[in-house]
Amino acid sequence: MQQILNGIVVGSVYGLFSLGFTLLFGVNHIMNMAHGSVFMWGAFAGLYATSILELPIAVALIVGMVAGGLISVALDFFAFRPLRRRGAPEFSAIVSSIGADLILLALAQKVSNTAVMRFPFDAFPVVVLSIFGLRIQLLQMVIVALVVIMVFGLVFYLYRTSFGLQIRSVAYSEQTSRLLGINPGPINMQVFFISGALAGMAGVLIGLVFNSVHFAMGEPLLMRAFVIIILGGLGSIPGALIAGLVIGLVQTLSVAYISSGVSEAIVFLTLFVVIVFRPTGLFGQSTAAMRIQRT
């Protein structure tokens, strides 16, 4: 039971991270391979804020979000925009993002000297409550609450504001949106910022939950994000969240009851099986990009 709880907490953060990832895919049809590094740099920024600038954790969280958002926008500018302008195939976008990922990783490695860092002990009050015989940390409750708030915020933004409408319009068809006078440029920037901010926030939260921040923390998460967004359906918000929870649970439970090594393999086997047999996932729609065959 305890593990299930832990799984839910972890899963909700996974969902948050994957949300940004799936948003990018839904709007731009690209798989941003550098998203994991955005996550990692968000954690770094949050850590910097608490340990060096000695800012309170809430502010550090915001710093992490903003850092994530800005790096993500920079990513768009350098790695994706030139290719979009040219109408380059998706292969190029993926390669470009891999290159950007390498750069971000290497810089982080340099800056941190490959060390595993931790948030200062007093960054978040360690309060453990006992409810129904389960030990619940205040941190865990706050995380879940934050994720829920963020998700509601995002859904509200997308479905109740005019900006959100424009974003959804571009996601549906960039060409049509252009004809309607919507300029995709600022829309893309917004989407990248939002997705990066979510990743940055996830970075700080994961850094707190697992009590470790290091330059390679993004890669395993990116891999899980693949599983999550494909399982949940590309471009689907509820899909990303539900699948996030599922994967979080699967991982936590298998680590607890089997072993950490095997849990990795299980996650990737899931990915493989899902991609092959049901690439639309649970909630996604089949796109022509997935298979060239009679439609």
Partner: peptide, 8 residues
């Protein structure tokens, strides 16, 4: 599969 999916 196609494209991105083969890659992943």
């Amino acid at each position: 599969l196609r494209g991105v999916f083969q890659a992943v």
